[in-house]
């Protein structure tokens, strides 16, 4: 039995006031998918649950000059096939289309999935790869934090106890010369992955790599950039250069130190980082050139 008070504000400012009032003792619940597990496992014991179910204005998906803005309450189900309407989000399709199952996608929200900060989350990995940022509202105003800085550890974020995540912004990029992809390996359909890897590349006119982002999931407490691999690629030929991609895979794998768990031993996760980095990169290059 969960013994806590359930509050239902109807606006962002009301929600922020309640958060300011109850501080660390309060938790925000949107779809409830992650919350139910965290509560059941006793990982959190809030005295107040602040439901944002009736808070309006957090459910839009809007394309703007800044990029695509996705409201925190958008369910994962609504993100199925999002890459078709917003092509810069195509890498999100790699994740969402295989994520969990229909029942879970129906009530899980994007904001909830980010704020849970599960170390195996593919969503935080792919959003980091896409250089996304999140908008945090509080009674004192708003601030924007990049995804890479937002997830600070396993089940830990940079959000203050009085802040509410309201929006995710995925910046635009030139679809003619850049693309992202995500690859994951699961032991069973619908599971958290053993390892997930996101890759973003932007190309110059001659098949060289102008910029690269490679983000590895579930090998540390938060999504981690494979900096050595990124450095290896930047400024070098990448299109048609399988050697460079293979090297990037090796570099990414040699710089992770995952812990073993019942799903997989560390050594195997390292093998997967290599394979998935290669596959994600190859796919990103194919998309950027296709």
């Amino acid at each position: 039995m969960i013994d806590c008070q359930y509050l239902e504000p109807t606006t962002v400012s009301e929600a922020c006031t309640l958060l300011a009032e109850h501080g660390d003792d309060a938790k925000v619940v949107a779809g409830g998918q992650s919350m139910a597990i965290l509560l059941r496992n006793g990982l959190i014991q809030p005295s107040h649950l602040i439901s944002i179910q009736h808070v309006s204005g957090l459910e839009d998906i809007v394309a703007s000059d800044e990029g695509v803005k996705i409201g925190a309450k958008v369910t994962l189900d609504r993100l199925i096939g999002i890459g078709e309407t917003h092509p810069t989000l195509r890498a999100l399709d790699d994740v969402i289309n295989e994520l969990a199952d229909q029942q879970i996608r129906n009530f899980a929200t994007l904001g909830g999935a980010i704020c849970e900060a599960h170390p195996a989350s593919d969503i935080t990995v792919v959003l980091s790869t896409l250089n996304a940022s999140v908008k945090l509202a509080s009674a004192g105003g708003e601030r924007v934090v990049s995804m890479c800085d937002f997830v600070t550890g396993a089940f830990a974020t940079a959000a203050q106890s009085d802040e509410l995540l309201t929006e995710v912004v995925v910046p635009s990029f030139d679809l003619g010369s850049a693309a992202a992809a995500h690859r994951r390996f699961v032991l069973r359909a619908g599971d958290y992955p053993v390892v997930g890897v996101g890759a973003f590349v932007s190309l110059d006119g001659s098949g060289g790599c102008q910029d690269a982002r490679i983000v590895v999931g579930n090998c540390s407490s938060a999504p981690a950039h494979a900096q050595e691999a990124e450095t290896r690629l930047k400024g070098h030929s990448i299109v048609g250069n399988n050697g460079a991609i293979a090297e990037a895979g090796e570099l990414a794998a040699s710089h992770v130190a995952p812990s073993s768990d019942p799903m997989a031993p560390s050594e195997y996760k390292i093998d997967l980082v290599n394979v998935l980095t290669r596959e994600a990169l190859a796919e990103a290059v194919a998309r950027a050139t296709g």
């Binding site: 032991l187 069973r188 359909a189 619908g190 599971d191 019942p262 799903m263």
Partner: peptide, 11 residues
């Protein structure tokens, strides 16, 4: 049942 891997229909 999240961690004990009974296969799903997809497998």
């Amino acid at each position: 049942l999240m961690d004990y891997k009974i296969p799903s229909i997809i497998e």
